[in-house]
Amino acid sequence: MATTKVAIIASNGGLFDAYKVFNLATAAAASDAEVGIFFTFEGLNLIHKESHKNLPLPEGKEHFASGFKQANAPSIEELLTIAQELDVKMLACQMTMDVLKLEKDQFIDGIEVAGAASFIEYAKDASMTLTF
């Protein structure tokens, strides 16, 4: 069976964004797809050591916090661990890190720092590219 290759761009840093990115990434990886995520601008929050544990809900949507609990949705920390266990490749955008003065050690272990060209190289033969 030909391998499905999924390329994801995560460019927003809220809790909703994190669920969209990590639900699809882990579902794809669990279905034997090769998955790579490029985290850029606010998307870097999703893999920041501290920030990913406490991502904000959109303004005025704070009441959805209880909905996540009721649906027994896994936490972002859990989804991140699963994504790493399933070998999801995570790339942090070098240029954003330079602009925001962030260092690699401020991010979770196991990520790679890469430029736009690296992601383009990865995504050029992807079966699908998803942007969040």
Binding site: A27, A30, S31, N72, A73
Partner: peptide, 13 residues
């Protein structure tokens, strides 16, 4: 049981 998407397939895998 009690798990939401995508956990059932992740666990199955």
């Amino acid at each position: 049981k009690g798990l939401s998407c995508p956990m059932p397939i992740v666990k199955t895998k």
